[in-house]
Design a protein around this nucleic acid. Structure first.
Length: 217
DNA sequence: TGAATGATTTACT
DNA sequence: GTAAATCATTCAA
């Protein structure tokens, strides 16, 4: 048991499944300010979520579940809400998502950045950085490394003890286009990225309406 | 079976 | 600003 308690007024207990069983845009927006908690044999880490994106397959061209594509990788998104969808990209980075809404509808929220709250030394050790470095958790791949989230965690129940969201303070939420989905045509223009614009731990600053023309189609 | 590629990060010019 | 790193996953054959 950890001797110190986090500097939040709320207990570090998992949010109920009902939190995830709502429209994906609602869940994405309400993620901002919540606390992401991770427990492993190495110890506990926690961070305040400051950036998240909604992926609304099967219509959303940017989503892995676009067109209802149901493969071993995307299978968990077709299951019940409140579970983890973790995937691996570019041969080196993991990405952590929350499965939302309802069984059969493959919607998910990508957690893109958190502010370190608890276990910063362990995060620094995992990242190979000093604990004060702002690059500790300011990106979807970075936070997965700091929180030791891997493909092993895909399908994990977010109402369990080892990986979950807990309540946090209410904050103002800004919106922008999503990052890295220019290939998605008109879907890339959707303002489905949500963030606390005052945070210094965003993967990129919030700038609405400034996006290069999509390459190709 | 093999080829293409990616919801990124890092280092370097 | 650009490029390299590096492999699970998908799809075509």
């Amino acid at each position: 048991m950890q001797a110190t308690r986090p500097a939040t007024s709320s207990p570090l207990t998992p949010l109920p499944r009902a939190f995830y069983a709502r429209p994906v845009l609602t869940v994405a927006r309400e993620c901002i300010g919540k606390i992401l908690v991770r427990r492993t044999a190495e110890g506990a880490v926690a961070g305040r979520i400051v950036e998240a994106e909604a992926y609304r397959g099967p219509q959303d061209r940017a989503a892995h579940s676009f067109g209802g594509r149901r493969t071993p990788r995307t299978e968990v998104m077709f299951g019940p809400p409140g579970h983890a969808y973790v995937f691996f990209v570019y041969g080196m980075h993991h990405q952590f998502n929350l499965v939302t809404t309802r069984r059969g509808l493959p919607h998910a929220v990508l957690i893109r950045a958190v502010e370190p709250l608890l276990g910063v030394d362990l995060m620094g050790k995992r990242r190979g950085l000093c604990p004060e470095d702002p690059r500790l958790t300011s990106g979807p791949g970075r936070l997965c490394q700091a929180f030791a989230i891997t493909l092993m965690d895909t399908g994990a129940d977010l109402c369990g003890r080892d990986l979950f969201l807990a309540a946090g303070k209410r904050v103002r939420v800004a919106r922008s286009t999503r990052i890295g989905v220019d290939y998605a045509g008109a879907w890339a223009d959707k303002l489905w990225r949500f963030a606390d614009p005052t945070s210094r731990h965003l993967s990129r600053p919030i700038r609405v309406g400034i996006r290069r023309e999509a390459k190709g189609r």
